[in-house]
Design a protein around this nucleic acid. Structure first.
Length: 655
RNA sequence: GCCGGGUUAGCUCAGUGGUAGAGCAACCGCCUUGUAAGCGGUUGGUCGUGGGUUCAAUCCCCACACCCGGCUCCA
């Protein structure tokens, strides 16, 4: 047999024996590569390492420390978990078990049984035995008729086979099983366990091991809330013990930053159950921060050419019939109040009211773009199970603006908005942005295709002209128009969707909005909906998590705490406090009734940016001892230089 | 809304079919303190709400409210 030539991703060619596999290729390159290899991409198809190679193949070896490699590892671990569960719970039906970001899950139908947290370690034990047995994953393709016999007792598998071979498969199905019409691929790793699967998998179960089962929950079969409820186990799996531990540490870190926990600890706000779910009350310290956020926002909008408006919390139902919201979102609105002069709803959004302001009198093209801004509080009856601290809440305040402009102004308006958004978010400490374009939902939309095309084109051309890169989310738009969502990355790498810019040709039509053009004709304005924080509450929650409660000085409820060493220094502490307060700083004093160490500790736990200690030396020298958050102690700093330093730190150049 | 788990002092959490306990916090003393918990004492709870079972319910059962983990949803 003659040798074959294989191309590598870097363009080099390699001559191999004709019976070579992806694994032998890896071995021929280096021992370490062979050791790290979990799968390969051959001519753009992801395959097992055992796959035979052919002359001319382009082959990339996937290693376990890459995202693609971890994906294989996680998917294989999911198989082992399913194997363990089937072993331990006779009669269980297995459904699908994909790899996901950071891990995997598998969904089971256990009949009336449910998993408990205690089951997890038992399942883990069984998995470890399967891993220790080092069972090889063997792929085969079998005819559909044979597969239906093999999985005869597994109704979910039969359903998947029917969909894949019947042409009704979706991406979930296709990820589960390779279907070429009359055959399906399966992976078997022992006499007792076989699963429908596209693959690839690691060579054998012994390759796995750095995993942890995390939680049990439920999920709907195929995401359909009318369908069967399945039992899901989530797990995580990594290429090494260190990587697993690092990930688990990240989870602990995320928990430490949980805004719901910090809101209690720092006395920022609460969700009294007497109020009802998803409704918050802001305590004084939280309110200070919120007010500063709002003040900053107002200042930026003021200088950004916005006009401030206010609108009520209630409206007659006819308004929301006109806007179309009642047709689409009646379920998400608080129920109507029947009054003697009509039916009223708490407002779920501000835009219809801003339309009324625009329509309040005749408008000229000279007024455009007209930018109306409001910190508008809205109420949405979010389903009970979806509430989540400040991130998903039923009463919230949008930093909401509606910009009415001409077709000609649209692109430049969007471009300047992109700058405005980033500039405002940067002030709150976010540096890393990503952009996402959402296009028309094929079902939930109003307006003609032409209008949608024009609007989408406007957003695309603005994004292109601005020069930012973006991803596209098909079908994710609001019912009235396409949108750009802006996500930020936080201090521990998580992303949050905050800002949104939505292009709307529909509401102007529904409200019959017009302006007089320079030729005297009546024209329809285009409307942009946009919010930067999104919701003040949610943005606040994100800030808490981003800073782990240690807000930057300008936002801290208490900026400076003064600790007199002993009783004798309290007068001096008071004098320092008066001096700093007079310069606009938020200062308090912790009296000498407790030991200094304890007061330091308390102040640190409250994450106060500056703790000043004053004792005999400071009284005589008119200085303070400065403990800046996260920094070493500085003794003998003059009061004025401390004040200058903090005032410089908290000043803004852009307002 | 669905599945599962919860709700005990301001906070974090023990505990029991015979109406409850710790630590921290708060308050009162003592100590007068130079960088992450000094000492002693006191106060504080209709055991989420409403029904039921029981001689007796915080505990067992039911309903509801709220919270948590997911699913679904998110104008």
């Amino acid at each position: 047999m003659s040798d074959i030539t294989i191309k590598l991703p870097d363009g080099t060619q390699k001559v191999m024996p004709s019976d070579s596999t992806a694994l032998s290729l890896a071995s021929s390159i280096s021992r370490n590569l062979a050791k790290a290899a979990v799968s390969a991409v051959v001519d753009d198809r992801e395959v097992d390492l055992s796959t035979p190679l052919n002359h001319g193949n382009v082959v990339q070896i996937i290693t376990v420390d890459s995202e693609a490699g971890r994906h294989v590892l996680r998917h294989s671990t999911a198989h082992v978990m399913a194997q363990a569960v089937l072993q331990m719970y006779p009669g269980a039906k297995y459904t699908i078990g994909p790899a996901i970001e950071n891990g995997f899950y598998y969904d089971f139908d256990l009949g009336d049984r449910v998993f408990t947290e205690d089951d997890l370690s038992l399942v883990e034990d069984t998995m470890r035995k399967i891993i220790a047995a080092n069972q090889p994953f063997v792929r085969s393709e079998i005819p559909v008729s044979e597969a239906l016999v093999l999985f005869a007792s597994q109704s979910y598998k039969c359903e998947i086979i029917a969909r894949v071979t019947g042409g009704g498969a979706d991406s979930v199905d296709n990820a589960e099983v390779g279907g070429s019409g009359d055959s399906v691929s399966i992976y078997r790793n022992s006499d007792e366990f076989v699963d429908l699967c596209l693959g690839p998998h690691v060579a054998s179960t012994g390759r796995l091991g750095h995993f942890k089962l995390q939680k049990v929950s439920s999920a709907y079969w195929r995401g359909n809330e009318k369908g069967p409820v399945l039992q899901r186990i989530y797990g995580t799996a990594w290429e090494s013990k260190a990587a697993l531990e690092e990930y688990l540490h990240r989870l602990v870190e995320a928990e430490r930053r949980d805004h719901r926990k910090l809101a209690v600890e720092l006395d920022l706000l609460s969700f009294p159950s007497e109020l009802g779910g998803g409704l918050a009350v802001w305590h004084p310290k939280g309110a200070i921060i919120r007010k500063l956020m709002e003040d900053y926002s107002r200042a930026r909008h003021q200088s950004g050419g916005y006009q401030f408006v206010f609108t009520p919390h209630l409206s007659n139902a006819t308004l929301f019939q006109t806007s179309g919201h009642l047709d689409f979102y009646a379920d998400g609105m608080y129920p109507p109040m029947e009054m003697d002069n009509g039916t009223y709803y708490p407002k779920p959004m501000n835009c219809p009211m801003h339309c009324l302001i625009f329509r309040g009198r005749q408008r000229s093209y000279r007024e455009l773009p007209l930018r109306l801004f409001e910190l508008g509080t809205v109420y949405r009856y979010e389903r009970a199970g979806t509430l989540h601290g400040l991130m998903r809440i039923r009463g919230f305040t949008q930093d909401d603006s509606h910009i009415f402009c001409t077709q000609d102004q649209l692109q430049s308006e969007i471009i300047s908005l992109l700058d405005f958004v980033m500039s405002v978010l940067k002030a709150f400490g976010f540096e890393d942005f990503s952009f996402h374009l959402s296009t028309k939902d094929p079902v939930k939309y109003v307006g003609s295709d032409e209008i949608w095309e024009t609007a989408t084109e406007a957003l695309v051309s603005a994004l292109d002209a601005h020069g930012v890169s973006y991803s596209v989310k098909d079908g994710d738009a609001a019912f009235y128009g396409p949108k750009i969502d802006i996500h930020v990355r936080d201090a521990i790498g998580r992303t949050w969707q905050l800002s949104t810019i939505q292009c709307d040709f529909n509401l102007p039509e529904r409200f019959d909005l017009e302006y007089v053009a320079n030729d005297g004709s009546r024209q329809r304005p285009i409307m942009l909906h946009r919010a930067l924080f999104g919701s003040v509450e949610r943005f606040f929650g994100v800030l808490v998590e981003h800073y782990a409660g240690a807000f930057p000085t300008w936002l801290s409820p208490v900026q400076v705490r003064i600790l007199p060493v002993a009783l004798a220094h309290e007068d001096y502490a008071q004098a320092v406090a008066t001096t700093l307060s007079a310069q606009g700083l938020r200062v308090d004093i912790s009296e000498a009734s407790d030991q200094l160490g304890k007061r330091i500790r308390t102040a640190k736990l409250e994450k106060i940016p500056y703790v000043l200690v004053v004792g005999d030396e400071d009284v005589s020298a008119q200085t303070v001892g400065v403990n800046a958050r996260g920094a070493d102690v500085e003794r003998g700093v003059s009061i004025s230089s401390f004040a200058d330093r903090v005032l410089t730190e908290i000043s803004f150049s852009d307002i």
